Amino acid sequence: MVSDATHNAVHTSDISRPSTSANATKGPVVCVFCGSSPGTSPVHMAAARALGVVFAAHNIKLVYGGGTVGLMGEIARTVVSLSGPNSVHGIIPEALKAFEQEGRPGTASPSDPGPVEISEKIYGRTTTVPDMHTRKQLMAKEVLEGGPGSGFVALSGGYGTIEELFEMTTWNQLGIHGRGVIMFNVEGYYDGLIQWVQTAVSAGFISPGNGGILVEALDAEEVIRQLKDYQVSEGRFKLDWTQK
């Protein structure tokens, strides 16, 4: 089923409207980008579980890509098991269900290629959308409408995770949003990425004032602290995104 929200175009100006005072009374909403694979080391799945436990402890609502396998499924199951179905919203394009939802062709459990009903009692609410752009726009919109401590977090993942992480980092630099963007650096997984940012700053492609947009966290509790304490970078572009 396609959410009503997907029948209308979601413009950048809709996403970038500044938070109002009403947001201060809302709880935090955190979008987590992560792999639909469990990885080759159990530390990655353990990190996803740990982050889910911390989300529940801090009454954080999870928005994620809607998958039921790999790290995606692990964090969703963990949060729902501790905070209930209303604490998780998965947003997934129709085409990606074949790879990111258990029981479909191409996933870790391909034995049943027929229709799969994703249980809200296990994974929370799921919204199906037509494309990747709508998925990312809706996830970002929920984060921006959340209360203090809302933001974007990347667990370990592949090309898609990196692309989503850097899009939100770029949007921050462009002034589209001012939420925290955090890398959960599990056992050095993102060390190379951190080095690249430092190289880009020294080479003059990222200003020193924007070198700290993307923040590292080494454990689940630090992820929450970094989101709560996040400071908008002084070098952000002061652009007007309210024009349609």
Rank of each mutant, 00 (worst) to 15 (best):
T20R: 14
Y64C: 00
V153A: 05
A50M: 10
V80D: 15
I15T: 03
A200D: 02
T12W: 12
N59K: 14
G27Y: 03
F33M: 08
S13F: 14
V153I: 04
Q173H: 11
E222M: 12
A47M: 05
H89W: 13
L239P: 12
R179L: 03
Q231H: 10
S21N: 15
G160L: 00
D4W: 05
A203E: 08
L165N: 01
T107M: 06
M45S: 15
V43C: 10
K136L: 06
Y189F: 04
Q195M: 13
K26C: 13
G114A: 02
S36P: 06
T68M: 12
A95G: 07
E117H: 15
Q231A: 09
E142R: 15
H11A: 11
H7I: 13
W171I: 10
V69I: 12
I15F: 07
H11T: 13
T169S: 02
V69E: 00
V69N: 00
V29H: 03
R179D: 05
S36Q: 04
S41M: 05
S16I: 07
Q226L: 07
N8Q: 13
H44D: 11
L96H: 04
G39D: 01
R236N: 13
G212Y: 13
E145L: 09
A47Y: 03
T127C: 12
L96T: 06
M45E: 15
G39F: 00
W171Q: 00
H133Y: 13
P208L: 02
I122T: 14
F33D: 04
T242R: 15
D14C: 07
S156H: 08
H133R: 11
D4T: 11
V10K: 14
A220N: 05
M139F: 04
P115I: 06
H7S: 10
L138H: 00
A9P: 12
E216K: 13
Q243R: 10
A46N: 10
G209P: 01
I206P: 01
P110W: 11
P208S: 01
E117A: 10
T161S: 06
L165Y: 00
P93Q: 12
S21Q: 08
E216H: 03
Q137R: 14
F184S: 00
I224F: 11
E216P: 01
L51E: 03
Y230V: 00
P18H: 01
A95D: 11
N86K: 14
I194N: 03
R17I: 11
F166T: 09
G70R: 07
